[in-house]
Simulated scan of single mutants.
Amino acid sequence: MNIAFETPDQPDIIALIADLDAYQLTLYPPESVYALDMASLKQPNVVFAVARDAAGAAVGCAAMVVTPEFGEIKRMYVRPEARGQGLARRVLGMLEREAAARGCTLYTLETGPSQPEAIALYEKLGYQRCGPYGGYRDDPLSVFMRKTAQ
């Protein structure tokens, strides 16, 4: 598997994000899905990483929005058939290293309680639960997490 920084506006990545959106909407109502649109993903303060299989197909992705206050993980997804290979861990590590290189010292994310595997991964990687941050409101369908850069 190859992981690299890429632009999100490629057809296979757009399809990957569409799969993520469809999956999220099976778990949560639309008002509890805090997804970034394509225009937001293409902003200069967003780092976007893509995992590709041996054939070059996009099988995973994630973004980090880097602000002066924190870096926020967004659009983290690995196709079900590619899970269990450490891709999410590698993609997240790549995003954290790039954010640190840009001076970011705090990483945050919002996920949901219906994704216990994701929560377990984040906890294993040093993220801890916290309250809402940024513009988020308290939502029973949100789990907020943060990690201080090492």
Rank of each mutant, 00 (worst) to 15 (best):
S40C: 01
G86H: 04
Q85S: 15
L87D: 00
A88Y: 03
R83I: 10
Y23M: 14
M38N: 05
G56F: 09
Q43C: 12
E72I: 00
Y107A: 12
Q24T: 07
Q85N: 15
A99R: 04
E31Y: 12
Y127V: 03
P113F: 13
R90T: 05
V59E: 00
L36P: 02
F48N: 03
G134V: 11
G84R: 06
K124H: 15
L41K: 04
A39K: 02
G103A: 12
M76P: 09
R75K: 15
E96I: 06
G112H: 04
L87E: 00
Y23C: 07
E96N: 13
R83K: 10
V47W: 09
E31H: 11
A62V: 15
P116V: 01
A39I: 03
L106H: 13
M76A: 15
A101L: 15
L92R: 02
L87Y: 00
A82F: 12
L121W: 02
L109P: 07
Q24E: 05
R75Q: 11
P68V: 07
A39E: 08
K74C: 03
V59T: 07
R83E: 06
A100D: 14
G131S: 07
V78I: 08
Q24G: 09
R90M: 11
G56Y: 12
D19L: 14
S32I: 05
L109F: 07
A63V: 03
E69W: 13
E72D: 09
A55K: 05
R52E: 11
R52N: 07
D37V: 01
A55D: 08
L36F: 01
R75G: 04
E72M: 02
C104W: 04
F70I: 13
Q128K: 10
L109S: 06
L27W: 03
G126E: 02
A58K: 06
Y23G: 11
N45V: 12
R102A: 14
R90S: 11
E81H: 05
N45K: 11
A55L: 03
K42L: 10
R129K: 11
Y127N: 00
I73A: 07
L125S: 03
G134P: 10
Q43N: 13
Q85C: 15
Q115G: 02
G103P: 12
R97H: 12
L27Y: 03
K74I: 01
V46M: 11
D53T: 07
P116H: 08
G60M: 11
T105L: 14
A120K: 08
L125F: 05
Y23S: 08
A100C: 14
I73F: 04
V33G: 10
L20N: 04
V66A: 08
R75F: 05
L41H: 06
T67P: 06
E98D: 10
V59Y: 00
E117L: 04
L36I: 00
Y34R: 06
A88K: 02
V59G: 02
A49Y: 05
E69G: 13
K42Q: 15
L92S: 01
G60Q: 09
A51Q: 02
